[in-house]
């Protein structure tokens, strides 16, 4: 935003921020139900997409981005946890999107697949509920410098919707 004096009627496109060049598709990692988006059922702010499937530790937790990318995998809990073991203990797969933007996938159970890896929808663990959770699910969150962004998920992805594996959740 600038003063009117220096506003330009027509510019060639400005240098796009690195994030502008990226448009990855975020997809459901297993057959699932969308259990929360911006709001929880209670009306509490959530600001992310949760997809759930009740078969804890059965489904592999595939990384939910349909592109080959490098995932930084952090294990905070080693055992099988389906129903939560406290805030901050969630296992995380983190995708660096540049310019301070991150995409995070939480709550999976550690397995021999849980290591930093470059892949397209590969498994980084099993579906689980590590961290602050009341059931097995995957939480997908986008943020810039630690501030949550709620606009990435598709307007057509709504709470209660059944998603097939690989079905669009949004664009990051």
């Amino acid at each position: 935003m600038r003063s009117p004096k220096s506003r330009l009627a027509a510019l060639t496109a400005l240098v796009a921020l690195p994030t502008a060049a990226l448009a990855y598709t975020a997809v459901a990692p297993y057959p699932s139900t969308v259990t929360a988006t911006t709001y929880y059922s209670s009306g509490t702010y959530h600001g992310a997409v949760d997809v759930a499937n009740s078969r804890c530790n059965y489904w592999g937790a595939e990384t939910g981005v349909s592109a080959t990318v490098y995932w930084n995998v952090t294990v905070r809990t080693s055992g099988v946890v389906c129903n939560g073991n406290g805030s901050g203990n969630q296992n995380e797969a983190l995708l660096n999107l540049g310019s301070g933007w991150s995409f995070r996938q939480w709550h999976w159970i550690k397995t021999s697949d849980s290591y930093d890896r470059t892949c397209n929808r590969c498994q980084v663990g099993n579906l689980g509920g590590t961290g602050n959770a009341t059931g097995a699910h995957s939480h997908f969150q986008k943020d810039q410098y630690g501030t949550k962004n709620t606009s990435w998920y598709s307007s057509y992805t709504s709470k209660g919707e059944a998603l097939d594996r690989g079905e669009l959740m949004g664009y990051i």
Binding site: P18, L22, A67, Y70, N96, G98, T118
Partner: peptide
């Protein structure tokens, strides 16, 4: 370098 590794992966 840009799209797989976001420019911050030493080996790449």
């Amino acid at each position: 370098n840009q799209f797989v590794y976001a420019g911050f992966h030493g080996p790449a």
